[in-house]
Every structure is written in structure tokens, then in C-alpha cells.
């Protein structure tokens, strides 16, 4: 553990700052970063959404997607989008856990996916580089 790493988080290590940046995207209404054990590392969700339950489900979904690899011969999942009539959830896998964004139906999926890809790149560089 270096002092520098604690005092000045590198790009991709400041998880709360990273989530705050993603929440600036248009029509994104909330998000969280959750470890695969189901405990949230950072969360900013609409008041009516129960963070603990959503974190547990997001981690379960993330793990299911990771574990589909050998079963479906697809390898790891870089990103997935799940939509209903009134909104969508975007989820990406990183070494520290899953980043989940919640968007309104009008949210621009391409912009959200591009922003998530950029963040995932930062996380990989910061945590595995």
C-alpha cells in the first residue's frame, strides 16, 4: 500500500468520483458500484429504491453473466443492457465489481455504453496495471 495511492487516487481508483461522473449522463437516474459479494462500494440511487436489495440483485446478475462464459462459450461479458417498458439497467464487469447504471427509456444507450467502456478502461488500468 503506497501512501501516494491513498492520498491521491489514480484515475479509475476514485470509485465514488467515477460514479458521480457517470451520473452526469443525460437521463441516467441512478447507479451503483457493487462488489461480487453484493455489498455496495458506492451508490447514488433514487430515494424510493432500496440500495441493499438492488445491490444484492445487481451482484447476482453480474455473477450470472460472468458464469455464463464456460456454459455458453461466450467468455467474459464486457457489458449487458436489460430493458423494460419504463427503463433500463446497464451493467459492466470490472476486477473490483460491477458498475450498474439505471436509465430512463429516453436515455441514449450508445452514449451510456461509450461512457461505461471508458470507465472500465480506467478501472482496469488502475487496478490491474
Amino acid at each position: 500500500m503506497s501512501t501516494a495511492a491513498v492520498a491521491r487516487p489514480a484515475l479509475g481508483r476514485d470509485l465514488r468520483g467515477m460514479l458521480a461522473e457517470l451520473l452526469k449522463l443525460e437521463h441516467v437516474v441512478g447507479g451503483l458500484i457493487v462488489a461480487p459479494d453484493g455489498l455496495a462500494i458506492a451508490a447514488d440511487l433514487p430515494r424510493e429504491v432500496q440500495a441493499e436489495a438492488l445491490s444484492a440483485l445487481a451482484a447476482t446478475l453480474g455473477r450470472e453473466l460472468e458464469l455464463r462464459g464456460p456454459q455458453r462459450r461466450l467468455g467474459t461479458f464486457p457489458m449487458a443492457q436489460f430493458s423494460s417498458v419504463s427503463g433500463a439497467a446497464f451493467i459492466v464487469s470490472t476486477p473490483i465489481g460491477f458498475i450498474v447504471l439505471l436509465g430512463e427509456p429516453s436515455a441514449d444507450g450508445d452514449s451510456i455504453r461509450a461512457a461505461l467502456r471508458k470507465m472500465v478502461g480506467n478501472v482496469y488500468r488502475a487496478w490491474t496495471g
Binding site: R68, F77, Q81, F82
Partner: peptide
């Protein structure tokens, strides 16, 4: 739980 209703579409990017 997010207040969106049941799944209708999904896109899952694999390797």
C-alpha cells in the same frame, strides 16, 4: 426493484 417493471429486452455482449 429499480421501479422499471419486468424484463422485455436484453443485449449481452460476450467475448
Amino acid at each position: 426493484r429499480a421501479g422499471f417493471g419486468p424484463l422485455r429486452h436484453a443485449v449481452i455482449e460476450g467475448a
